[in-house]
């Protein structure tokens, strides 16, 4: 870990101006991913700007029924919030399925969105990795790929995105508020992550001078919410495949999948098949997939998960 200055910002504006002055500075809230990477020198910012005390730690219900979640709200506070539990249970479930109690108490909304892959080659600085060092190659291709992406991959990178929260946000059509000194923009989470790319080190649309300030949830959509996470052990593990699924009152369904792509994987155009032809949904959702011998099981597993949830929902309705 390289030396760094640590400044606690007093406001979002203060935080942004500090980062504007130092182009390699990073924001830190909980630090559970950033510090992990800094110990390995995968990240080495010379300045950390602490945003945990800038007042972005609230969950506010707006008049129009939408909910604004501050970027430094902890994962456990968000999961436990009664408005979330009642109105967006898939989000609560997704958060509770992630990490451990200790990590959820420290990890924050913004940090969760921006966390990096857990690809073991990304993490081992002796190995070639285009995401960590552009142009160096991808050691995962042809290597241990069981936990990596099966779709939306490129020749440069097959990393999967590990966040559970983001999968739920994707199925809820959340929006991300980004602030800079020059203004604010709102990006639908659908457009936040780059997928397959020749530049895997650039993962989201966020600019260096921007800070995630809030996640905005639309008004509750109602329905039955499920977050199913399949992993190799019963807890404290990343997903092999996960699914955030909502069965809406009008009889339709929507789903976002985790563990299969460099971002939450949702194929809106095929969703009407969820309630009529699962095989066809899977075929379309994974068309163009580029799996490896080791991770190809994720596609049939995804189908099994969807089948399970559909059956569970039917039984609950009966």
């Amino acid at each position: 870990m390289r030396p760094f200055n640590f400044i606690t910002a007093e406001s979002p504006q203060h935080a942004l101006s500090l980062v504007a002055e130092n182009k390699n500075a990073k924001f830190i809230a909980g630090g559970t991913n950033l510090l992990d990477l800094m110990k390995l020198e995968i990240e080495a910012p010379p300045l950390l700007v602490d945003i945990s005390k800038t007042g972005l730690d609230k969950i506010e219900k707006r008049e129009d029924g939408r909910i604004a979640i501050g970027t430094s709200v902890t994962n456990s506070a968000l999961a436990a919030d009664m408005n979330i539990r009642r109105g967006y249970p898939v989000l609560s479930r997704a958060l509770l399925a992630g990490a451990s109690g200790q990590l959820r108490n420290k990890a924050t909304t913004g940090g969760n969105l921006l966390q990096r892959t857990r690809c073991p080659y990304f993490y081992d600085t002796a190995q070639a990795c285009n995401k960590r060092l552009p142009g160096s190659g991808c050691s995962a291709k042809g290597g241990f790929s069981r936990l990596l992406a099966v779709i939306d991959v490129s020749d440069a990178c097959i990393a999967s995105f590990p966040s559970d929260m983001a999968v739920a946000l994707r199925v809820l059509d959340a929006e991300i508020e980004l602030c800079s000194l020059t203004g604010t923009r709102i990006i639908p989470i659908r457009d936040f992550y780059h997928g397959a790319t020749t530049q895997p080190h650039i993962e989201t649309v966020i600019r260096r001078d921007e800070l995630i300030t809030r996640i905005i949830l639309p008004r509750p959509i109602g329905g039955s919410h499920f977050y199913e996470k399949v992993r190799d052990r019963a807890s404290y593990a990343f997903a092999l495949v996960s699914a955030a699924m909502v069965f809406l009152p009008d009889g339709s369904a929507r789903v976002a999948l985790g563990g299969v792509a460099p971002k939450p994987w949702r194929v809106e155009s095929a969703e009407q098949l969820l309630t009529t032809d699962i095989d066809e949904y899977v075929r379309i959702a994974f068309s163009g997939a580029s799996s490896t011998h080791e991770n190809q099981f994720k596609i049939p597993l995804a189908k099994q998960i969807l089948t399970t949830l559909i059956n569970e929902h039917k039984e609950a309705m009966a």
Partner: peptide, 9 residues
Amino acid sequence: NPSRRDFVK
């Protein structure tokens, strides 16, 4: 501009 998660030196 490259994102702030630019490649680390």
